[in-house]
């Protein structure tokens, strides 16, 4: 009898469990629309609920934010940079724990768009507590250096706290040396480059090349626009050859020589008072002095081109180790 009762009780218990499970199933089916409605707001973007400006966010906000960031990363991976930026700018009232991620992502999107000034502005807002602080600071400083703000880049790099003898420490030395070279501060470069060790493969080649850039810049003869102008005054076109523009120099010489010979021909045939001689001499004079001014400008242009080329090489050798180290 007892045994029969026990089996009966067991059946009742199992039936209860069964009924409860089925009940939950039915209940879920009934309340599904409600659950779905709360799963994610159909609004365009993540937005903190009213009165949620305080740093602590609810779990739902946290989950939504993570999903939003995941989606932005997905868009960035696809190369949809405009869209990523739009999504980042559309996030309103993010919790304080997300500020760094947002600054970093915004800075990185601008960096990928080659908008380096704005990128630096955002990357340098990442706080020291963030795991991407170092990457942000290095890239922020690089972006500043690329935008011609060498001293600002230098101060960002110096303000970073990095343990001596580590790879980031060596990387900072390389970056600071590059900045000194961009500033054409050879003395500072010589001091900073003493720490080049060649120990880290991510930057050993760049350290060597940075030394070569230094030597090339140090030994580079500074061409003077005045000398260029004077050379062209002596022999038309010679100043351009001095500036490294041999073809332009030869063409300039031929033009002035042809005009000079034409003027001489008019002088020989009609004398100094003839209108053809005066016209021809005037044109020759204009070309002659134009050639002198053009030669001075060519020297300036040539100097600028050389400096620009060297800057690009230095920036390239600052950039590659950063990409190697952080990507």
């Amino acid at each position: 009898m007892n045994h029969h009762n026990q089996r009966f009780n067991k059946r009742i218990k199992a039936g209860k469990v069964h009924a409860i499970t089925a009940g939950v199933f039915l209940l879920l089916l009934l309340i599904m629309p409600g659950l779905q409605a709360s799963a994610e707001a159909p609004s365009f973007f993540i937005e903190a609920a009213p009165g949620k400006q305080e740093p602590v966010q609810s779990d739902a906000d946290e989950i939504n934010m993570r999903r939003e960031i995941d989606f932005i990363l997905y868009m960035m991976g696809r190369g949809d940079l405009e869209e990523s930026l739009f999504l980042l700018q559309s996030i309103r009232g993010p919790g304080i724990q997300w500020q760094d991620s947002l600054h970093y992502l915004t800075g990185w999107v601008h960096y990928l768009r080659k908008d380096l000034d704005t990128s630096a502005d955002h990357l340098l807002l990442v706080s020291q507590e963030s795991p991407v602080y170092r990457k942000s600071s290095f890239f922020g400083a690089y972006n500043l250096a690329h935008s011609g703000k060498a001293s600002k880049a230098s101060s960002v790099l110096s303000s970073m706290t990095i343990e001596a003898g580590t790879m980031p420490y060596a990387l900072r030395h390389l970056q600071m040396s590059g900045v000194a070279l961009l500033d054409r501060d050879f003395e500072l470069f010589a001091r900073r480059s003493e720490n080049f060790s060649g120990r880290y493969h991510v930057m050993a080649a760049e350290e060597r090349r940075m030394m070569q850039h230094y030597e090339r810049l140090r030994d580079m003869p500074g061409r003077s626009p005045f000398v260029g102008g004077m050379l062209s005054a002596a022999i038309p076109g010679l100043g351009k050859i001095y500036a490294g523009k041999t073809g332009e120099g030869i063409v300039g010489f031929l033009y002035v020589a042809a005009l000079g010979l034409t003027t001489y021909d008019f002088y020989r045939g009609s004398g100094a008072g003839h209108p053809l001689f005066i016209l021809s001499a005037s044109i020759t004079g204009i070309f002659y002095f134009g050639n002198i001014m053009g030669s001075a400008a060519a020297v300036r242009r040539s100097n600028n081109e050389l400096n620009h080329e060297m800057d690009q090489r230095i920036l390239f050798d600052m950039h590659i180790p950063l990409r190697n180290a952080f990507n």
Binding site: A258, L259, L261, T262, D265, F266, G269, L276
Partner: peptide, 8 residues
């Protein structure tokens, strides 16, 4: 008679 000028 302006031969050179004629050429250039």
């Amino acid at each position: 008679g302006y031969y050179i000028a004629g050429v250039f």
